[in-house]
Amino acid sequence: MSTPPPDLPVHASPSAVEPPLDDGWIARTVQTALDEDLGPAPGRDVTTQATVPPSDTRTAHLVARAAGTVAGLVVVAETLRQTATRLALPAPEVTFHTQDGSAVVPGQVLASLTGRTQVLLVAERTLLNLASRASGVATATAAFTRELAGTGAQVLDTRKTTPGLRALDKYAVRAGGGTNKRMGLHDVAMVKDNHVVAAGGVAPAIHAIRAAFPDVLVQVEADTTAQAMEALDAGADFLLLDNMPTDVLAATVAAVRERQGRDGVPAHVELEATGTLTLDRAREVALTGVDHLSVGALTHSAPILDLALDLR
């Protein structure tokens, strides 16, 4: 059995990301993931349980194979705990050498796991699937965060998340320095083109939302400067400026800012750019004066960060 180098820093907690990922969500998600691999609880791993004695004990290192921003370390201990319970074995001990939200380099040891080898091997793919996925989202988000530094604009996520993993995806965005927009359909109203058609216009849609749900912010999607002004006049709190060329976006931002604080318009209207927001275009979009850039690709297209579990 080997141990990491003695000068490797140790972190008592795997995360300093706020708000933290809910413990109950982690437990439910790990249970579902283990069921997929092992079958209904307690399940079985026919390879590991046939080839590794239950008494065998080793250390495994969770290692980064690529540079990026790590996230998802918070699932490691629960994955090991549930796996150990299914196998009726003690849970391995975990020592974290970095935290979610930290930059990592190839070969870096992220955590040391010491305990029954069966538990380590059975849990391996589940914890790697979750942590690699989250780290990929965090890495993509961190790239946008760096690109927007000094502009005053923030990168936001969207609802384009993996079904069942939204909490993890949005946690990973926070780990990468991004900001969560809305968690679902329940916490912010967003009036899009189909809502406008269904309600008979922007103003009727906004008035209906105010009447039914007076406690929520109302955001309206606009494709043109004229639509943005219409939404502003109708009382929108927040404008989503969709798929605008940079010059049109800049003109729309200027028009909205000129109206702020006048004729019942709030002193500051939140402006969000979205659509075709690649990393190489992000800074020029931010410099138009928008408050936010929402990027669906953070969660729907980010490649995983390659992580591995190396048995010593």
Rank of each mutant, 00 (worst) to 15 (best):
Q154E: 14
V137L: 01
D157S: 03
A255P: 10
V218E: 11
T276L: 15
Y171D: 04
A60R: 07
A149Y: 05
R312N: 14
K181M: 12
G115F: 11
A142M: 12
R259D: 00
Q219M: 15
H292D: 06
A199W: 04
G261R: 01
L128V: 01
G152R: 08
V188W: 06
S112Q: 09
A297K: 10
L148C: 09
H207T: 15
V10I: 15
K160H: 05
V17Q: 05
L277I: 15
A27K: 12
T141L: 08
T51N: 03
A212Q: 12
R312K: 09
N243V: 05
S135E: 08
L298W: 03
L240V: 05
A211D: 13
A67M: 11
A211V: 06
R182I: 03
D45N: 07
V216F: 05
H195C: 01
Q99T: 15
L249G: 07
A236N: 08
V269N: 02
T83S: 09
D100F: 00
A16S: 14
A211W: 01
T299Q: 06
V202P: 10
G261Q: 10
T274A: 14
Q154M: 11
R174Q: 05
T83P: 07
D263W: 06
T139N: 07
L249R: 11
V248W: 07
V197S: 11
V269P: 07
V220A: 04
A140N: 09
L87Y: 12
S135L: 05
G264Q: 12
T158G: 06
D157N: 06
D291M: 05
L121P: 07
Q227C: 10
V137Y: 03
D35W: 02
G150L: 00
E284I: 11
A172V: 00
A267W: 03
T141A: 09
R159Y: 08
V155F: 04
L307C: 00
E93G: 15
L168E: 03
E284M: 11
D7S: 14
A143L: 14
R116G: 07
A66N: 13
V104Y: 01
L293F: 09
A60L: 08
A302Q: 00
G264P: 02
R58V: 14
S132W: 05
I304P: 01
L113E: 04
T246H: 09
T274I: 05
G184H: 06
A27E: 13
H292G: 01
L127S: 02
A50M: 12
A103W: 06
R65D: 14
A208C: 02
